[in-house]
Amino acid sequence: MTTSQHTVNALQSSLSGINSNAETSTRPLECVELFAGCGAMALGLQQAGFIHPVMVDVDAYACRTLSANRTAFGKSDRLSITQTDVRHVDWQAYAGIDLIAGGPPSQPFSGGGLGAGQHDHRDLWPEAIRAVSEALPRAFVFESTPGLLRPSFSQYLDRLVARLEQPCSIQEDMHYKVTVVPLNAADYGVAQNLRRVLIAGIREDCGNLLKFPAPTHNHERLVWDKWVSGEYWERHGLVRPDASFVPKEEVSIYKRLLKGNTRPAGAAWRTCRDALANNGTAAPAARFEDCTVRRAARQYPGHTGSQLDLPSKALKAGVHGVPGGENMFIDDKGACWQFTVRDAARLQGLPDNFVVEGSWSQGMRQLGNALPVPVATVTGLWLNDCLNLPV
């Protein structure tokens, strides 16, 4: 029997076994994750009802982090954490899995990179396509940098979507409905202005694509809570500042809200102060649960820290020399501090009992590459709904 014939038989057997019980089965949904990183995406998907039999990442510290938190991902006795290059994985073993998820390296497409795209050796989107083509999951979702939407990559993105719509050359009748979703994590309850892109697909015989959920949080409500009602300061046990302290980026919103005198719908953006649980003004010697000392940082033009009472700048995987000061914040006295690993974990929506293995630089690299937990949870619930729709 040829390899292609074996693949077809394996897929047909697995797919028929899953789909025959799709409407009546109460089994938990399963997700295979490649480029799993520290597991923030996996944790969010687990909160949405997906369990993980397999997680794959090439980085040793990321795999140590996954292992240290394996009980958080559900059915931990079945979870296999594999440290390997995804190019060495045979995805046929997971034929018919409910979901394949992951975050291919974004450096080839990010604004801070060389912008070499497919010519960058770190471009592993072909491996994401191969995983889908070999396993033919019921659904898939991959996350990446908004740089992928730049005009210079438009042809690459078009080809990528086309390949994902019909990924398997040996089963040409197997198609996916694919969507590209740009979003800001702050709009979904993350204390970061972090823009990401999701590329998701539903196999045509397994459900239908719904519109991605609308944002639940917004800047207007934060401005209202701070400068109109004062609820924000009260929640933090602080004296409400005079309106003359409204920052320039919020002045126009503040004036518009005063004129309309109507509280905006939805929830307020979460801020650094919210995420750090009132520890934003801690002394430099203060220690968090991971015993990491908060270190002073230096500001200069073009390299400034995040404001406490706004969502942070997007965390970056770079450690020293991050160009815009993304991995630091300014306290109430104007002093600037580096985020600790625990700070960064909180900004990514990870609970305080989540262990991040490695040094500060290794921890920040893992967290800077992560999809925030709340975004992954919203995504997982959305995909679950899509899979439950009639074909």
Rank of each mutant, 00 (worst) to 15 (best):
D59L: 04
G37P: 06
Y300V: 09
R221M: 08
K211A: 14
E357W: 10
T26Q: 13
M1H: 13
A95D: 08
Q362G: 13
G39F: 00
Y232E: 04
C291K: 15
N69Q: 14
G334P: 11
F354V: 06
F339A: 00
G147Q: 09
A135E: 01
H88Y: 05
R196S: 04
Y61P: 00
T262C: 14
S229G: 03
Q47W: 05
T7Q: 15
H175E: 15
D59E: 14
G17K: 04
I202E: 10
I81E: 12
S4W: 05
P241G: 10
R342P: 00
V356L: 12
W337A: 01
A95P: 12
H88N: 12
D123K: 11
A283W: 02
S13P: 01
A40F: 02
S110N: 09
D332A: 14
R150L: 14
K316Y: 00
P390M: 04
G103V: 04
E165P: 09
G280A: 10
L194G: 01
D332H: 08
L381Q: 13
P323R: 11
P108V: 07
G147F: 09
D385S: 14
V178Q: 02
L381Y: 04
A267R: 12
G305Q: 02
P241H: 07
K259C: 07
G237D: 09
A186F: 05
A185E: 08
Q338L: 15
G103T: 09
D331M: 08
G49T: 07
G102A: 08
V356T: 05
K248A: 13
I18W: 03
P28Y: 08
G111S: 14
S154Y: 05
V161I: 15
N69T: 11
L210A: 15
E231L: 09
G39C: 04
C386N: 06
T65Y: 03
G115M: 07
N278Q: 10
V178H: 03
G207T: 06
R294Q: 13
N369H: 08
V373T: 13
F142N: 01
L45A: 05
L45T: 01
